[in-house]
């Protein structure tokens, strides 16, 4: 497929010079995010995140399967990030680019390896039956900062998701359909979010948050920090690029923590709004009362 068009020399100069004077093309502050929107779908587990012109959709799903032989007490949790030509014609189906591999590794480290989802709670019958939870990340529009948007979408989708209720009686596992019993949320331990800094200048002295695609194309280095609101780092990735002063990186982490707290509040607020919206009919209220045991 065609390569992504590179910014022209004058375009590059313009962006870089503006950044040197602490100006951005869209008039934002250096540490300001684009207008951030989060919405949930009609179904459980669908989250749609928009950062300016970047748009990512995440969908969580679950099914019952057999656990891995070496981990009989754990459920299965996967995050699938396949970039389609929808995001950019440069992405090809079934041929992962570097962007895609790094994105999937980062999400994996941030959400999966940090233990955000309690995989032990997904186990139904040890060694025989467990839930396999899967999140599919669909990038609908790529205008920079895919990582932060995708991470927010994944976390929001998983927190919004409900898996079918189950019961075990006499060794017989019953999975109830949505019509029989209301679905139950996942056992969620903490919500990590990614904050990506982009660095500009010969020594990476200008640090910028939420870079657009054009800015990403001309940056000299980037650093993604994943944190949760309790101030735990889940992952840091500055994978090469121009060396940046260590003290500056520490400052970036501190600022990232404040941003993560904002993300955390946003997701909490939107989830609460969504619950209220769903509860309106009274039908749900009736169902949940029925299910109380």
């Amino acid at each position: 497929m065609p390569r992504e068009a590179e910014p022209s020399l004058s375009e590059r100069q313009f962006v870089l010079q503006a950044l040197q004077e602490n100006l951005r093309l869209d008039g934002r502050e250096l540490d300001q995010y684009r207008p951030l929107e989060l919405s949930f779908g009609d179904q459980y587990g669908v989250a749609d995140v928009t950062f300016g012109r970047t748009r990512v959709l995440a969908k969580a799903s679950a099914e019952v399967t057999v656990p891995y032989a070496d981990r009989p007490l754990d459920g299965i949790f996967n995050i699938a990030t396949e970039l389609s030509p929808m995001a950019s014609p440069a992405f090809e189906v079934n041929r992962p680019t570097e962007t895609e591999i790094l994105l999937s590794r980062l999400l994996e480290k941030t959400v999966r390896r940090s233990g955000a989802l309690d995989t032990e709670s997904l186990c139904l019958v040890a060694g025989q039956k467990c839930w396999s939870v899967r999140v599919d990340v669909h990038v609908l529009s790529h205008d920079g900062n895919l990582i932060d948007a995708a991470c927010l979408a994944v976390v929001a989708a998983l927190r919004h998701f409900r898996k079918p209720d189950t019961s075990i009686e006499g060794g017989v596992l019953t999975v109830y359909t949505a019509a029989e019993r209301e679905a139950v949320p996942l056992s969620w331990l903490h919500s990590p979010f990614c904050v990506t800094w982009s660095f500009f200048g010969d020594e990476g002295e200008t640090a910028v948050l939420d870079a657009t695609r054009l800015e990403e194309q001309v940056r000299v280095a980037s650093c993604t920090v994943s944190l949760n609101k309790h101030g735990e780092i889940c992952q840091i990735a500055k994978l090469g690029g121009v060396p940046v002063d260590a003290v500056a990186l520490l400052q970036c982490t501190a600022v990232a923590l404040t941003k993560v707290k904002e993300f955390s509040e946003l997701v909490d607020k939107k989830l609460a709004e969504d619950v209220k919206k769903r509860d309106k009919g009274g039908f749900m209220a009736e169902l949940s009362a029925e299910n109380e045991r």
Binding site: K109, R113, S114, G115, E203, G204, C223, L227, G231, E232, I233, C234, Q235, I236, A237, K238, L239, G240, G241, V242, P243, V244, D245, A246, V247, L249, L250, T253, A254, L257
Partner: peptide, 18 residues
């Protein structure tokens, strides 16, 4: 120099320890 080219952390740690 004190300039960091690569910084990779793959485990959970308190921000104060960094």
């Amino acid at each position: 120099s004190d300039r960091v080219a690569v910084l990779v952390c793959e485990s959970r740690v308190q921000v104060g320890r960094l």
